[in-house]
Nucleic acid binder design. Structure first.
Lengths: 249, 249
DNA sequence: GATCGATGTTGATGCAGGTCAACGATTCGG
DNA sequence: CCGAATCGTTGACCTGCATCAACATCGATC
């Protein structure tokens, strides 16, 4: 399962960036020609296979990542094995923001993909030289913090059904941002991973998924993709009636 | 309960900052003379009473705050009144990082205090001119994000006793950072607020507090302060045995 | 320092979701 | 294409914490 990442030194040109499909979703989207070249110089372009470990909780925090393809799971463990997944990353997402001397989380690929990897010391220097990038990173951090607050509300106060519905609404939003229509949702993660993200068990996730299916709110297309049939009902179940989430009802 | 904050326009000098006891704990700690003067120019120095509302969830996000004295509660609500407290702020903490166009949380004073209040548009401009400040803010955001991840683990996977113990360890750490010895801990918040922070009920918080007291792990000095008698035991109960938390055992 | 509303504690009981168990569906290496 | 391991679903039962209720304590106010 856990292999080593394949690194190839940056080519030094911004060509890789020019053709990078994740750029418009990423912090580097704010940079122009020269900045991209500079950033790319410091980047290792790595690829990873499903199940590969990018970061291990407790290890010295030496690198930062910009996910360019694939999906990544970020989680924390208790000593007895209880697991909390604190996020799922997709292309454009930044990995390593919430990092001190050591990683406080592990990161593992759900699906094969690729990333730009930076040595932390290099990245620090680059940030000093490029305030625009630092600004973009701060905006990203603010957004992540807001998402973390939402997740705290979910974990602390929502019922199992509300959690699942909120999760699906979140996936739908992300799908729309990535260019989809928001009805078709991919589930690259397993039920166990959904459970560990929502603070539930696989059984509870499964039961509530069935309930949503039975009620006609969603339709399972395969084990790892579904279609949202009644978005407004899903929003209600998520406990978000009042909040503006931009889903056509 | 909810009153208006008392604002007095910044004096334009950095004198206020020079004598500000929160500065060494705050993002403005990185600034020198000229930067402080500039920042202070943009600041309203406000004071607030216990119970006063600084920010209301859903309102347009017009201001940012730097807490200089007192304690503040930050929370989110569901439409039926369920509440999740996402953080308690003390002097030196920044309020408003995780903010888009509208506040996604409410903030209310637990105790009388004061803050530097900035108009968001002004602060943005200042950040452009002072990369050091932006950098400090990014570090602060990274730290907050890490804390949020810890809280997700707590809310998603810890038992009631582990949550309470973790909470007390956190308060102890903060007390030490503020200059105390870490044994004496102030609880400026009510049991209900602790419960809403830990995803529990007041009853469960109360029962587990009693258990800790009975076991001799803590000693209640008053309703709103306690002493940690067995720090190592508390750490164990918090499920942090392995993690380095810098408490003398 | 007496009064009263707010806050905290303790006990009895209920239930949402966890646990345990059995079985069906999917996936992937050969 | 086959078989084994993994993943997902469903059912029966259990438990940790919520809920409901009664009482104790605190602290602000006059």
């Amino acid at each position: 399962m856990t292999g080593t990442t394949t690194a190839c030194a940056g080519a030094g040109s911004a060509e890789v960036c020019a053709s990078c499909s994740a750029r418009r979703l990423s912090v580097c989207g704010v940079l122009e020609q020269e900045g991209l070249r500079r950033l790319n110089e410091a980047a290792d372009h790595i690829t990873f296979r499903a199940g590969e470990v990018l970061v291990r909780e407790g290890d010295p925090a030496t690198h930062l990542f910009n996910i360019t393809a694939g999906d990544v799971r970020v989680h924390k463990l208790l000593s007895d094995g209880r697991r909390q997944i604190v996020g799922f990353l997709s292309p454009g997402d930044f990995l390593g923001l919430a990092t001190g001397d050591r990683y406080a989380f592990s990161a593992e690929a759900l699906a094969p993909g690729s990333a730009c990897r930076f040595r932390k010391v290099d990245y620090r220097k680059i940030l000093r030289e490029m305030p625009d990038l630092e600004h973009a990173l701060l905006e990203r951090a603010a957004h992540e913090l807001k998402a973390a607050h939402d997740q705290m509300l979910l974990l602390g106060r929502k019922t199992a059904m509300e959690r699942l519905a909120s999760f699906l609404v979140g996936l739908s939003d992300r799908a729309r941002r990535a260019g989809g229509d928001g009805r078709l949702v991919a589930l690259p993660m397993t039920r166990a991973e959904i459970a560990d993200y929502l603070g539930l068990t696989t059984e509870t996730v499964s039961r509530n998924t069935t309930r949503l299916k039975t009620r006609g709110v969603i339709r399972l297309l395969s084990m790892h993709s579904l279609s949202i049939e009644r978005p407004s009902e899903l929003l209600q179940l998520a406990g978000l009636e009042a909040e503006a989430v931009g889903v056509a009802t």
